[in-house]
Each structure stands twice: as structure tokens, then as C-alpha cells.
Amino acid sequence: MENDAKHNSENLSRRGFAAAAAGAATWILTSCGPKRLYEVPKDRLRTKISELEQRYQQRYHEHINVADTQPMAGVEYAYALDLSRCIGCRRCVYACVAENNQSRDPQIQWIRVLSMEKEKGVDLAHADPYYNPPEVPEEGHFYMPVQCQHCENPPCTKVCPTAATWKERDGIVVIDYDWCIGCRYCMAACPYGARHFNWAEPEIPTAEINPNTHYLGNRPRTKGVVEKCTFCIQRTRTGRYPACEEVCPVGARKFGNLLDAGSEIRYIIEHKRVFVLKEDLNTVPRFFYFYAT
């Protein structure tokens, strides 16, 4: 009898130990070390972000606000660009650089405007991103700005060994810079050349830093991580238009909610001649090119 009880209690404590050990292991796995944004418990997120803001404060001597605005319900973003309007002025490129804190030196630009010959049509093999005439548009040329296409079926997110990049519910393909190890597999996988690597510590003049940032968007990056267009996540998740859309002098850029039947994006898809880049790769871009006239 006595023996039995002893046996029992020993058993209990052993079981208790196992449970405690498992608990500790889970605790270690879930609460130590960096996390991808979606795994961080909501109550810890703010602490994590304010730590980040403090680090930025030290580095840039300015308060940089890092938001973690979540996707809106019933919203999936899409972009449309009117090829019959774009004049290749590159205003969008530089508005994007300023808004999204891209490195000035080494130079990183999320938007690349390609000059193409009207005779050849959309022909990437003969496209020139370095065109530099005194005035645009040039005779016989048209222009095709290319940036992240926010594919429905993104090849880049599948190859990431650390799952540092993924597609959000509102369709934005994002990168968690804290998880990016800089292997650049995603850059090889992207058929649009939309991803860019920080080969050196990015350099931005302090006066030009945009202090309104998003965790998954334009917060300052470091050397060794990949970055790309986020549809201006810091603006669009609060209802605003992306920076490139607002700056375009000819109004070639259009943005909106694909799920809203009254949006301009739906009007374009339903009424204009629309195509996507490299349709044959089945990436299903959320970035449409169209001809309004």
C-alpha cells in the first residue's frame, strides 16, 4: 500500500516534470529570438516595435514611427498603369525612393522605367532602362514602368528558406527584414526584377528620411537584406493612394480595391484593353497594364 502510493507520487512528479519541460521548450521556442511579424503575440508587438523605434532614434537622431497597420477586411489591392499615357518622366521612381526610404548610395530604385520602341511593341529583350534624352517622350518610343507585380501566385515567396517573405490577406507581398538572411533566392525567382539587394549599408541623408513607416514596408533597412515595392503599405492601409500614383504628371497610374465593383481599377479591367506582364509564367500579377485610348 505504502509502496503503491510512493510509486504513484513518483509517477506524478515525473509526469509533472515532462509537462514542465515541454512548457519550457515551447516558451523558449515562442518567446526568444526574433519573429516574423505574424507570429508575434499582439501584446508583445508594441514592445518589439518601440524597441525598433529606439534603435532608429539612435541611428537617425529622429523619431521614426513604425506602424503595424493590419490589412482591411474585404480589400485586395491592384494597380493599373496606362501605357498610352506614360511619358517616361521617372517622377514616379523618385517619389517612390523618397517615400520608401530607399538607399541613395548605393542606389536602389524599386521602380524601373523601360523605354521601348513602338515598332517592336512590348519587347523586354530590347528595352532600355538607361534612356536619357533631354526631353521625353521620344519620337517612336513608349515607356513601361516595372515594379513588384504583387502576384497572386508569387514565385519569390516559395523559395525563401526562412519564410521571411509572404503574401498578406490584402494581396501585398511583404518582406520581414529581420528574417531576411540575404540569400537572394527570391531575386532569382522573380521574373520581373522587382527585388533589390542592399549590397552595402544603405545611405539616406537624415533630412530626407520619411519618418512615417510600416514594419513590413518603408522602415529603414540594413545591409544584407532584400527589399521591393509594397504598394506603399504605410499609406494604402490607411486609405491613401501610393506615392507613385499621386505624383504621375499625366495620371497614368491607377490604384484601388479589386473587390470593389465601383473602383476605378474594376472599371479599367472591365472597359479597357488590359494585359499583364509575362502572363505565360502563371504568376497572375495584380499589376495591370492598359491602354485607355
Binding site: V75, K254, Y267
Partner: peptide, 27 residues
């Protein structure tokens, strides 16, 4: 027609709220 639908011309503001159009004569 395209301008009213937001396809012709530049819009600024909010994609899901108040937007500002320019008049034809602004551009």
C-alpha cells in the same frame, strides 16, 4: 466619361474615400 470614372487624369487623396480630381484645364 473616363475622367468621371477616375481613369483619365490624376487623382489624389484616398483610394477608399475623398479624392481630389484636377479639372481638365489644370493639366
Amino acid at each position: 466619361r473616363d475622367w468621371r470614372a477616375g481613369v483619365h487624369g490624376r487623382r489624389t487623396g484616398n483610394w477608399n474615400g475623398t479624392k481630389s480630381y484636377l479639372l481638365c484645364a489644370h493639366c
